[in-house]
Structures are given as C-alpha cells and as structure tokens.
Design a protein around this nucleic acid. Structure first.
Length: 210
DNA sequence: TATAAGATTTACT
DNA sequence: GTAAATCTTATAT
C-alpha cells in the first residue's frame, strides 16, 4: 500500500515522523530496486522551528521544494559530502519535512553494498547520509514525487508498539536554541531480527512528549 | 569577495 | 579523539 497524498499532507509533522517508523521506502534507480524499513526519523517543523532550513519562511533554491505540497522528496547536500533525504509533508506553502536517519535494508541488498562500498553491519545504514547512499538517493532527485515510480514509501503492515519507540532531541541542532531540546527524534531498535544483519541503533533514553 | 558553520561520515592517530 | 572531505547559506568586509 503506497502512502497517499492525503497521508503526506496532514498538518502534524511530528506525528507523521513517528508514523513513518516501520514504513518501507523503495527506490528504483539505475534500473535497480532497493528498499528498507525506516528505523529513525526527525521532524522539522516548517517556519517556526529554528532547526529547520525553512525557519522564518526562508526560501532559497535549495529549500524551495520544502514549500511544495506534501509528498515530494527534499534531498540536500550536507557538509558538501552527504546527500540527506527528507520527506516533505503538510499542505502547499507549509514547509514541513522529515529527515530519514536510518533504515533496515530489506531489498536489493547486493546493490546497496555496491553503493556503500562497505559490508553489512551496524554502521551500514544507521545514519542519514549512509541511508541515502544505500538507497541511491542524490540531491539531484530533490523534488521527486513520492507517488511516482522512482522513490516511494509503502505501508507493509509492520506495527510498531509505542513502547518500542525511543523519543528524544534531534542530533546536531545545538545551534537552534530552545528548539534543540524538542523531542522530535524517533527511533526503533532492532526489532526485526529476521532481517540480514540489521544495523543496530544506539539506544537513547525514552522521554515524555509534553 | 571572504569566511564560518552546518540536519555527517570516514580514516587516521 | 581528531581531521578531512568541500556544497550551501548567512554574515561580514
């Protein structure tokens, strides 16, 4: 079941970030299918979030796609090196985005190994840059429709119980003042033991969402 | 025009 | 633990 426009265009980006855990992201790039279960996400809440690229309504060539209606990809180059994949959500004009920070590889694993140039293991796709690299995502794909046949996300029926989800502050956003402490990071540990060498995530303390 | 810092990863020491 | 890789944006000359 491919996720719909209606799903992506919901208002609550934090709720959507939690919902994306356990969903499966597919790519069909260079004639190769790859897929993985989303294991870690972070919400970036549009114009009001100091950690967001669109804070204060900032529009640049890079961030313009964040203002589109939900259901497209926002992929940008971080530190000049890593291509970070985000899901744009919310209605048109509301620049919400969800950073995908980790996946458990499920399909096209040989292709992913070629792209990553490392063996499967803890670090294989447990960060935003490595996840994007495994899936073949590049910043040139920013703006790609997530309802097309290049990048899409499906609900395969994996149900993630609330007590398996760790919630905490986002990574690397110390510059964002008060917003750095917001509990907008969601991750699941290795609860898919049947998968080949699922990367482990470091546990963090579960905190209440207030 | 120049500089600094960033939603990071990797290879070294 | 530290450094290097080197694109985008913001701020300061």
């Amino acid at each position: 079941m491919k996720l719909t426009k209606e799903f992506y265009q919901q208002q609550d980006v934090v709720m959507l970030a939690r919902e994306l855990l356990g969903k499966v992201i597919f790519t069909f790039i260079d004639g190769q299918y790859t897929a993985g279960i989303i294991s870690e996400t972070e919400a970036y809440a549009g114009v009001t979030d100091k950690a967001s690229h669109a804070f204060g309504g900032r529009r640049t060539n890079r961030t313009e796609v964040m203002f589109a209606a939900g259901g497209v990809a926002y992929v940008y180059l971080c530190y000049g090196v890593h291509h970070l994949f985000n899901v744009v959500t919310g209605p048109e004009g509301t620049p919400h985005a969800i950073l995908v920070r980790g996946i458990f590889p499920t399909e096209g694993i040989e292709i992913m190994i070629q792209r990553r140039k490392v063996k499967l293991g803890k670090k294989f796709s447990s960060g935003p840059g490595t996840s994007s690299a495994a899936l073949g995502l590049k910043s040139s794909m920013s703006g790609t429709d997530l309802l097309g046949n290049i990048i899409w996300i499906e609900d395969m029926g994996f149900n993630i119980p609330e007590n398996e989800i760790y919630v905490g502050p986002r990574i690397g956003v110390d510059y964002a003042g008060d917003d750095a402490a917001l509990p907008y990071r969601f991750l699941i540990n290795d609860i898919f033991p049947g998968l080949p060498e699922s990367p482990e995530q470091q546990p963090i303390k579960q905190i209440e969402i207030t």
